[in-house]
Nucleic acid binder design. Structure first.
Length: 873
RNA sequence: GGGCAUUUAGCUCAGUUGGUAGAGCGUUCGAUUCACAUUCGAAAGGUCACUGGUUCGAAUCCAGUAAUGCCCACCA
């Protein structure tokens, strides 16, 4: 009837289809008629980024779920947005203005933020269009940005409430300080890099101490040894005047179990201001905390002649001086240590004490009697939140159990400025949601806002509910929260997932999501991390979309991947799925060519299913519907996609379409099967399925169609079984021909004795002839062996390929011997099992019955094969 | 140092309640105007890392070993 082009050119259709979807309102998150609606909050990409494979894989998986539920439930929400990513974005803009020779201080806060806003607006558009190019069916009318007014309101609301609950406090603590970003970092924003360096052993009065950082040791005056360390027992509690870097110091020896006798010399001095452990010790014993290194990474005035020098650069000079004074015992030149560096810029971290805002994770909440930590652990332990794969639950618990108070203030400009104001009249902070007009104590109107901003994860921790209108009580909150699934890479389990759980439980008293699906990382062909510095294996999803189409890229990212496991991606894989996309296109093309326009309007019912082949096809399809639905519900997307792929290609195309050629076509079943398959494939490959759908005279777009339902009245077990016999016969004949090197152009005569299955073989004679390239075909119930022929024995069926004049006795003998050997081998294992008393006694009945039946069938076949072999000459 | 994962065909990977090992790519043989050569038909190719255990039966469950990768902690 209709003719569509021979090859599917993805780029011709994709953007048009996307626009049509978007314009039609199909993406809009509607409420399900009954019960809670399926919803996903899209992990917001950084407002600065461009689409990479990490985004591509998350978009593909989330879109599959959203489209599936939209079809199945009639409604679903996928809420998109972007994250301001304070530190990453600020760094990027700083790099940009550096090209103009400017720093952010040259511009000043206001101008710098304006500049950043412009930059963000521009890159947001880029990433948003790239999200569209992946076919993402997200609700753009609900799009959010973490710096939007209402999201910022949510941030300030949570801050104030936490402050009032005594969870947020200001404290003087050691923090991870990045001297380049000039900001604090949370513990998990610190990375460790192995570095070769020197390890210095220094004479410190009665002991020798080891350190990698001599430049922090100026004011050390406490020696710590283990209480049981015999070497030092005599010194404990004593004081010494010790010649040190800048003259004499008075040092005391104390005993504490934190000193490891096995490490170094077993004695250490402590540097309270620049080591987390030493800070804790200093707090424990009440020692003075003096800063040696300042916020710029320079040595402070207490270091005397070294003041103002960069701490790292001063190291060698300090060591030189110590050497001159005989304070160096020896130096280990080959020491590898783990250098802590900033996860954003790679600069070495300086631990230093500073006034910062923290969230107390251990304090029990006034009304709930539990700490944030306890609540967060409970939510997962009780299975209210399920993490897939579940081994990540253990990792989550471990992390949560060891969580320290969360430092939330950052000395950055870009972000949510901390909603705290100060008045000159006192040091007390004024915490408010909206800027206060005057000081509540002295009515002074000149207030200063805390210059710091909040950790970017503070606002993204609110993402599942701040995007739905919280703190207002919105209908969206009611229908969509808690969200159904959080789908993201396992690499941000702590950064983000854990924080969302903490924040949501605190603010809304609800879990943020029911299931966490963690996908793996995409790696290159050799299993390495993809990097732009290796262009030969680095894959840019946008290039691939351009070259192979979005559907192919999506399939290649989903099939073959299992949650929590990394996956390799390479261009050949994408090309393979492009072939599949084209296969679907051409199968549809075939169906269309075999339809009249009246067939498109005809209704499909059970009575449309006529031939045995039709019934075989429709029966298979019911199983596929059932299985695919189950697999998607179980988050097994790879299997669901792969099964449908197999089905489409090797069942629908290779058999049913081939059978349909000639006299046997049934437009109703062809169309029903195609439509059902398009629906099942739509979540995985939305574009090509929608494009084909548009040629089928349907009223609704495929995106809004109903998900196929398994229909037990369309099962035809008996016909399915009969047809399978015909299919095996065709396969066997084809295989035997190829084995015997009989060219396809030779139309060989074949005789089949089909026994009880004679009727179906007679019915399908034409199909068998065509598909197995047979000349003359005789089908009888039984008969005598045909001389000069090759024989195939199936269970209850004998096939004779007459090869008078063509048969090669030697080849045939080899073929038969191989067959006998294989069958004998199988028979042997069957019999040894059936002779095993234990097996008969303990194995389930069905298994035993099955094996007995097989034994009988094979024994019979072997008998025939041997007779045949002996007759060959 | 602690934890986790992976190890299945030449390559990339599936394999959920334990019952003669599967796919795609690649290889080999055969097919040229058939919906599709982005195709079709066929084949070869595997002690399921190793050792032991449980079981009538193990790729699958348990214990141990090895290799690889990842995460956490971090030592003055």
């Amino acid at each position: 009837m209709k003719e569509i082009p021979k090859t599917y050119e993805a780029t011709e259709y994709e953007s048009k289809i996307y626009k049509k979807w978007e314009a039609s309102g199909a993406f809009k998150g509607k409420y399900k008629a009954k019960g809670k609606t399926f919803s996903i909050a899209m992990p917001p990409p950084n407002a600065t980024g461009t689409l990479h494979l990490g985004h591509a894989v998350m978009l593909a998986i989330q879109d599959i779920m959203t489209r599936y539920h939209r079809m199945k439930d009639g409604a679903a929400l996928w809420l998109p947005g972007t994250d301001h990513a304070s530190i990453a974005t600020q760094n990027k803009v700083e790099q940009l203005i550096a090209k103009e020779g400017l720093t952010r201080h040259d511009l000043g806060r206001e101008k710098f933020l304006k500049r950043t806003a412009e930059f963000v607006a521009n890159s947001q558009n880029i990433i948003k269009n790239q999200i569209r190019s992946m076919g993402s069916s997200c609700d753009w009318s609900r799009e959010r940005y973490t710096l939007d007014a209402d999201l910022s309101l949510a941030v300030r609301t949570v801050f104030k409430s936490m402050y009032e609950d005594g969870l947020i406090y200001r404290g003087y603590r050691i923090v991870n300080w990045c001297p380049r970003c000039k900001s604090t970092l949370a513990d998990d924003e610190v990375e460790y890099k192995e570095k070769k360096g020197k390890f210095y052993f220094m004479k410190y009065g009665p002991v020798i101490i080891g350190t990698a950082r001599p430049e922090t040791k100026f004011l050390d005056k406490v020696i710590v040894v283990h209480p049981d360390d015999k070497r030092y027992k005599k010194y404990i509690g004593k004081s010494f005047d010790i010649p040190w870097i800048n003259g004499k110091v008075k040092a005391t020896v104390i005993a504490d179990k934190s000193s490891d006798p096995e490490f170094g010399t077993g004695a250490m001095t402590i540097t309270p201001a620049h080591s987390f452990i030493d800070f804790d010790l200093a707090k424990k014993y009440g020692f003075e905390v003096v800063k040696i290194i300042d916020e710029n990474g320079n040595l402070t005035d207490v270091t005397g002649e070294f003041a103002g020098m960069n701490a790292h650069e001063a190291r060698e000079k300090i060591v030189e001086k110590m050497e001159k004074h005989g304070l160096i015992d020896h130096i280990d030149e080959n020491y590898t240590h783990n250098l802590s560096v900033c996860y954003r810029c790679g600069t070495a971290i300086e631990p230093l004490p500073s006034d910062q805002w923290f969230i107390n994770v251990d304090k029990k909440l006034p009304k709930r009697g539990k700490s944030l930590k306890q609540m967060s652990i409970e939510a997962v332990k009780s299975k209210k939140i399920k993490i897939l794969p579940d081994r990540f639950e253990k990792i989550y618990f471990h992390w949560m159990n060891n969580l320290h108070d969360w430092c939330i203030s950052r000395q950055l400009w870009f972000g949510h400025q901390i909603p705290v104001w100060y008045c000159d009249c006192s040091k007390d902070p004024i915490v408010a949601i909206e800027p206060p007009k005057h000081c509540p104590k002295c009515k002074n109107t000149k207030l200063r806002q805390d210059p710091d901003t909040l950790d970017t994860w503070f606002s993204s921790g609110l993402w599942t509910f701040s995007t739905l209108g919280w703190p207002k009580k919105t209908d969206d909150m009611k229908h969509f929260h808690p969200t159904s699934v959080m789908e993201t890479g396992y690499d941000i389990l702590f950064f983000w997932i854990a924080r969302m759980i903490i924040m949501s439980l605190y603010a809304t008293n609800e879990i943020p999501f029911e299931t966490v699906y963690l996908h793996g990382l995409i790696r290159d062909k050799f299993g390495n991390k993809m990097s732009k510095s290796k262009p030969e294996t680095c894959i840019d999803p946008l290039d691939m979309i351009e070259k192979y189409g979005t559907d192919s890229v999506r399939l290649s990212l989903v099939i073959g991947g299992t949650p929590g496991n990394d996956m390799r991606l390479y261009e050949e894989k994408i090309a393979g799925y492009r072939n599949f996309v084209n296969k679907i296109w051409n199968a549809s093309r075939f169906v269309l060519m075999n339809l009249e326009s009246k067939d498109l309007k005809a209704k499909f019912t059970k009575s449309s299913v006529k031939s045995t082949a039709d019934k075989w096809m429709v029966d298979h399809l019911q199983h596929l519907i059932k299985h695919t639905t189950e697999l998607i519900d179980e988050f097994r997307f790879s299997e669901a996609g792969n099964n449908t792929y197999d089905f489409f290609w090797s069942i629908f195309c290779d058999w049913y379409l081939e059978i349909s050629k000639g006299e046997h076509k049934n437009p109703a079943v062809l169309l029903y099967t195609l439509k059902t398959l398009l629906k099942l494939l739509h979540p995985f490959m939305p574009f090509v399925t929608e494009q084909i759908w548009s040629t089928l005279d349907e009223k609704k777009m495929l995106i809004l169609e109903e998900w196929p339902k398994f229909d037990k009245f369309l099962m035809f077990k008996k016909e399915e079984d009969l047809m399978q016999n015909v299919i095996s016969a065709i396969s066997e004949i084809r295989s035997t021909r190829a084995d015997l090197h009989i060219n396809n152009s030779v139309k060989i005569p074949v005789t089949i004795y089909a026994g009880t299955k004679t009727a179906i073989f007679k019915e399908k004679a034409e199909i068998i002839k065509r598909m197995a390239q047979i000349g003359e075909l005789n089908i009888e119930k039984t008969g005598k062996p045909i001389p000069s022929s090759v024989r195939i024995f199936l269970s209850g069926i004998e096939i004779y390929i007459s090869l008078a004049g063509i048969i090669n006795v030697q080849e045939e003998r080899a073929r038969i011997e191989k067959d006998i050997k294989e069958k004998q081998g199988f028979l042997n294992t069957l019999e040894s099992r059936l002779n095993n008393k234990g097996f008969i006694a303990k194995a389930p009945k069905e298994v035993i019955e099955k094996e007995k039946a097989q034994q009988k069938a094979i024994t019979e076949m072997l008998k025939k094969l041997n007779l045949y072999k002996n007759a060959l000459n």
